[in-house]
C-alpha cells in the first residue's frame, strides 16, 4: 500500500481504508477507489489538503477486460503550493454508470466531466451542463467506448449531396439519416432522447 504519496499519508484513517490500492510508476502515484468513496476522497483532497488544481478528468473503458468494473474515471490532481501531482482512479460499475460531479470543488470539472460524458456516456450527477460536447446533439453513440468502431457506423456518409442537375444545383437526400444534426439544439427533450436511445452498454 501507498508509501511516498503525501496526499495519501495526509488522509484520515477512515478515508485511508477507502483507498483500494496505490500504484506507482515513474514516481507518479495513482490511487484507486470505488465510486461510492470518490466524493469523500476528492472533498478531502480539495478542502483539507489544498489540491486546488484539477488538471484533468477523463475515463477509461475496460470492456471485456479482467478488471473490477468496466469504467475507470481518472482525476489528475495537483497542489500548487506543494507542487505535487497524482491521480485518483475511480472504478465505476457498468450497470450504474453515474457518479457524483465535483464541479462545485473545481470549476474545471464542468467541462472535463462534460467531455467524459460525451465520449463515454458516463453521467456525472449534479453537473448542470451535460449536453453533448464534441459530437452533434443527436449522434447515436458514445465514440470512445471500446465497442464502438474507429470508423463509426457510417454516420459520416449520411448527408444530402449537392449535385448539378441541368442548370442548377439541387440537393439529393440520402436514403437514411441516423443523424440529422440540423435539428433544434439543446432542448431538454432532445437530451433525454439521446440518453434514452444510446445507452453506453450493449
Amino acid at each position: 500500500m501507498a508509501d511516498n504519496n503525501p496526499a495519501y499519508e495526509a488522509l484520515p484513517a477512515d478515508l485511508k481504508s477507502k483507498v483500494l490500492e496505490s500504484v506507482e510508476h515513474q514516481g507518479q502515484v495513482a490511487l484507486r477507489c470505488k465510486a461510492a468513496d470518490q466524493r469523500a476522497l476528492l472533498e478531502n483532497f480539495r478542502l483539507s489538503q489544498g489540491y486546488d488544481f484539477l488538471v484533468d478528468v477523463t475515463a477509461m473503458d475496460h470492456l471485456g477486460k479482467d478488471t473490477e468494473e468496466r469504467f475507470e474515471i481518472v482525476y489528475v490532481l495537483r497542489s500548487l503550493t506543494a507542487n505535487h501531482t497524482f491521480r485518483l482512479h475511480v472504478w465505476l460499475d457498468e450497470s450504474d454508470n453515474a457518479i457524483p460531479s465535483v464541479f462545485d470543488l473545481w470549476d474545471s470539472a464542468r467541462w472535463g466531466e462534460r467531455e467524459t460524458h460525451d465520449m463515454f456516456g458516463i453521467v456525472f450527477e449534479g453537473n448542470p451542463d451535460l449536453r453533448r460536447f464534441l459530437m452533434p446533439e443527436d449522434y447515436p453513440a458514445f465514440p470512445l467506448l471500446k465497442d464502438y468502431p474507429l470508423k463509426g457506423k457510417e454516420e459520416r456518409r449520411q448527408f444530402p449531396k449537392v449535385v448539378a442537375r441541368g442548370d442548377r444545383m439541387v440537393e439529393e437526400e440520402p436514403d437514411t439519416y441516423p443523424t440529422s444534426i440540423g435539428r433544434q439544439m439543446h432542448t431538454p427533450e432532445y437530451i433525454e432522447e439521446v440518453r434514452r436511445d444510446s445507452k453506453p452498454r450493449e
Binding site: 510508476h25 515513474q26 507518479q28 488538471v55 484533468d56 477486460k65 489528475v76 491521480r87
Partner: peptide, 23 residues
C-alpha cells in the same frame, strides 16, 4: 501491462498533458 502515466509539458497555449495507459 497496467502501466499508466500522466505527463505534462508546457506548450505555447498552456499545459499539454498526455495520459497514456498501456495494456
Amino acid at each position: 501491462k497496467g502501466q499508466s502515466i500522466y505527463s505534462a509539458t508546457e506548450a505555447p497555449c498552456g499545459e499539454l498533458g498526455f495520459f497514456i495507459a498501456s495494456d
